[in-house]
Design a protein around this nucleic acid. Structure first.
Length: 817
DNA sequence: CAGCCTCGAGTTCC
DNA sequence: CTCGAGGCTG
């Protein structure tokens, strides 16, 4: 380094900033040069010295820490700002098999499904392909006229992230397809992975230079692909195997699969310049597939890259199409996974977390142990019964062995991701170990925690009194799929909640005004602290956390007594956000404008954000489509209330009748009791019943979801919280369906029986696109019933009500397709 | 009323 | 990713 280098403590802030920038550049360049050609431009000693100096300056001037500081660059940087890409054809996941028997079942299902073909044609033969399942990251590569134009991650399967620049650095990915015969547009899909050799090279390098902590090849490959600077990606060697495809179209946009079988397709990929896996084989029986599984398993360690199983696919593409899909997975393919890696460790503690719905979830705190290449120190214990050694039906699991603190337990990563406790070693159980007593009081707010009949989870009854539930609700509200406010993440929300600046979603939208007026506290710190200190145990940690937060905020209480902390919180309430440590004027301003951006919000997002039990993204969207405008939803919920109560009363009466009947040894007269409850109660107005029936008539919404919804909007506290929130917002009505001039626009349609030309969800989205409403059950509101073969009760009801009944073919004629 | 499928909720590590 | 619960079909 230069001779003019001064001691770190003598540097001015400006000088430090300048030097940091210079060193950052030197080090980054050296990193890239090293990775790209294995020929460092500076000596190792010089590199080490530069790195040391960099870290020293950074430590002395933490305020200068850059987001891409070399000291914080570890593994996969949480990348934001990759553009979203919608896949032409969704990228699906695969069903799993672990046992040989499940593989035989898979083959047997195929044989059964295609039985008619083999009866008709004695030559008919089913064959499958088997290939290793690479443990990497799926990517989809779009080629137009043979030129690589865009590459994306899998994402949620429908929308991924544009990582074209990074994928272009991978040698195995042709920028221009070779050979000929490729469709005008094709999405080639496969797995990006890192070889063991490359992973080792990176690890050795980082060990020498005190750099990043690379955990395993998969994570490293993921981190490399998510680099914003693709030079870094280029400096790490990644590989790609092609094995699947999405869109394949000719120049006129017509579907054009360039082959007839999976096997030929992969051969084509090879001829176009892709790498394909050499261990792929064809087989005609379960035995053939399993033989290949064993062969691949035996070679696993020597392949030079990670695999986590073997994938089997039906070979013929036309048959794949005929066999179809279940949910998001093809029926015609299955992943046979290698047994999960297991590890033994000690269970040091069981903590209880409280979720947004009040669910108490036990989490195992473990002595850290490596499982499948990752150090695991927490694992889920599911619920009360799981700890006790029972499953949801009350049958024993783990031979009925319960789990106790201090036990030696076996952990594995389910799906190679989520750590779970699988087993207990009774021989190592300490004599002092006692059965775990699951709390019956909420550990956060001391409210009673109850288990409803038939429910596997115990829930805190504190509602919004419970700080854990309040915070979790707020976290859910600001989460990505919900309101998604830039600069207001889970951490900030927790902070604002603890500081009494926010207690419910509405408070987010009054923050700006309160910040300028100086009246920031929405709760009384004394009251908050009162219950924190009310109890001997549990409170200490929470107070500690609060103390720590105040320190971070730059307001240090004069002592640690609750009164002093409350005083500090109050003082904090007089500071504008921009004055808090970690918040400058810019970031505060940015937050306020991000909040403003969300004052206009789509109906479905708002509804989802409320976090009503059983109301997730899909149900919210369905409700938004049904009601269109927010006021129509609230009006319907209000109207439905009496009928909802009546429904509950009827359910209760039926349950009572069941019990009585069981005691008396006779058959329960359910219909009579149900009818009696409705008839005997003229107090329920007809319009209330109509609103209720309309609600639970929506496809996918039944009585339980209905009760949760109506109750949320009726309960005075919850409803006023919702109304307070909505008063700050402008709710965008759900967009009216695109085509208004179709024959079915505005009609309510129900599909029943088995549909042959389309799946149920296709039928639903098609009808919706044409402006129709899709309901799940037939009522007087129904205009058309589309009945396939095997239609039963709905058909009968439609006939009784005089609803138009048409066939699937009629439907296509009606909509002109 | 049983069995299938979809959706919601909770979880870990980076 | 997995489990359980809720909804729907047959």
């Amino acid at each position: 380094m230069s001779a003019s280098e001064s001691k770190v403590e003598d540097l001015t802030e400006d000088a430090a900033r300048g030097e940091l920038e210079r060193l950052h550049e030197v080090l980054s360049k050296a990193d890239i040069a090293y990775h790209q050609n294995d020929a460092p431009e500076i000596t190792d000693a010089a590199y080490d010295a530069a790195k040391k100096r960099y870290l020293e300056i950074e430590a002395a001037f933490p305020q200068l820490g850059q987001p891409d500081s070399l000291s914080t660059k570890v593994g996969a940087a949480p990348a934001e700002g990759f553009a979203k890409v919608q896949h032409g054809v969704p990228m699906l996941s695969l069903g799993n098999a672990f046992e040989d028997e499940e593989v035989s079942d898979f083959v047997a299902r195929a044989k059964k499904f295609f039985m008619p073909d083999s009866l008709r044609d004695p030559e008919f033969m089913l064959d499958f392909v088997a290939e290793p399942k690479i443990d990497g990251l799926s990517a989809s590569l779009r080629y137009e006229d043979g030129v690589f134009v865009r590459g994306a991650t899998r994402g949620d399967g429908v929308v991924g992230e544009d990582i074209t620049a990074n994928l272009k650095t991978i040698d195995d990915i042709p920028k221009q397809l070779e050979g000929s015969g490729w469709p005008a547009v094709i999405e080639v899909r496969g797995e990006v992975y890192m070889s063991h050799a490359e992973f080792q090279r990176l690890k050795d390098h980082s060990a020498r230079f005190g750099g990043q902590d690379f955990v395993n090849p998969r994570n490293t490959a993921a981190g490399s692909l998510r680099q914003k600077n693709s030079e870094i990606t280029a400096s790490r060697k990644l590989n790609f195997f092609a094995y699947a495809w999405g869109v394949a179209e000719d120049a006129d946009g017509n579907p054009m699969p360039p082959a007839e079988t999976q096997w030929e397709m992969v051969e084509k990929f090879k001829s176009w310049g892709f790498k394909t896996n050499p261990l792929m084989i064809r087989a005609e029986s379960a035995k053939g597939l399993l033989d290949q599984y064993r062969k691949i398993e035996s070679q696993r360690a020597s392949l030079g890259y990670d695999i986590d199983g073997v994938v089997y696919k039906l070979n013929r593409l036309d048959l794949q199409q005929r066999w179809g899909f279940v949910a998001r997975a093809p029926r015609w393919a299955i992943a046979h996974k290698f047994p999960a890696e297991l590890a033994w460790t000690r269970l040091e503690a069981i903590d209880i977390q409280v979720g947004r719905t009040g669910a108490l979830s036990p989490v195992a705190r473990l002595m850290p142990v490596t499982v499948g290449g990752v150090v695991v120190s927490n694992a889920t214990l599911h619920n009360e019964d799981y700890i006790a050694g029972r499953d949801s039906r009350g049958d024993t699991i783990r031979d009925g062995k319960d789990i106790r603190i201090g036990d030696w337990v076996q952990v594995y990563r389910a799906g190679d991701v989520i750590p779970k406790v699988a087993d207990v070693d009774l021989s190592k159980r300490p004599d002092t170990a006692v059965p775990y007593a699951f709390p019956t009081l909420c550990p956060e707010c001391r409210s009673e925690a109850v288990r409803e009949e038939g429910d596997s989870v115990r829930r805190c009854t504190g509602g919004l009194i419970c700080p854990a539930q309040a915070v979790e609700k707020l976290r859910h509200f600001v989460s990505r799929a919900a309101v998604d406010i830039d600069g207001l993440g889970a951490k900030q929300v927790e902070f604002f909640y603890a500081m009494c600046w926010m207690a419910e979603p509405a408070d987010i939208f009054t923050l700006t005004d309160r910040d300028s007026s100086g009246e920031r506290l929405v709760r009384d710190p004394e009251a908050v602290l009162q219950y924190l200190t009310d109890d001997e145990d549990g409170a200490a940690t929470t107070l500690d956390e609060l103390y720590e937060m105040l320190e971070t905020a730059g307001v240090v209480p004069e002592g640690r007594a609750p009164a002093q902390i409350a005083e500090a919180i109050r003082k904090l309430g007089q500071l504008p956000l921009a004055k808090l440590k970690g918040w400058g004027g810019t970031s505060a301003g940015r937050l306020f404008s991000a909040i403003d951006e969300r004052r206009t919000i789509a109906f479905r997002r708002l509804l989802f954000a409320l976090g009503i039990r059983h109301v997730g993204e899909v149900v919210s969207a369905d409700l938004a489509k049904h009601y269109g405008e927010w006021v129509r939803l609230t009006a319907a919920m209000d109207a439905a209330y009496p009928a909802m109560e009546r429904h509950l009363a009827a359910e209760a009466a039926i349950a009572a009748e069941r019990r009585e009947a069981a005691d008396a040894g006779r058959r329960a007269q359910i219909t009579r009791v149900r009818d009696a409850t409705w008839v005997a109660e003229p107090a329920v107005p007809q319009e209330s019943r109509a609103a209720w029936d309309d609600l639970i008539g929506i496809d996918g919404i039944g009585a339980i979801v209905g009760v949760a919804l109506v109750a949320a909007f009726a309960q005075s506290a919850e409803r006023s919280s919702i109304d307070r929130l909505v008063s700050h917002l402008s709710v965008t009505p759900e967009a009216a369906p695109v085509a208004q001039d179709s024959a079915v626009a505005g009609k309510t349609v129900v599909f029943t029986g088995s549909l042959e030309r389309m799946t149920r969800s296709e039928a639903k989205s098609m009808a919706e696109q044409l402006g129709a409403k899709v309901a799940g059950s037939v009522s007087s509101q129904t205009d058309i019933l589309v009945a396939g073969p095997g239609a039963g009760s709905k058909l009968k009801k439609a006939e009784e009500l005089g609803v138009d009944v048409i066939s699937e073919d009629d439907w296509f004629t009606l909509v002109g397709r």
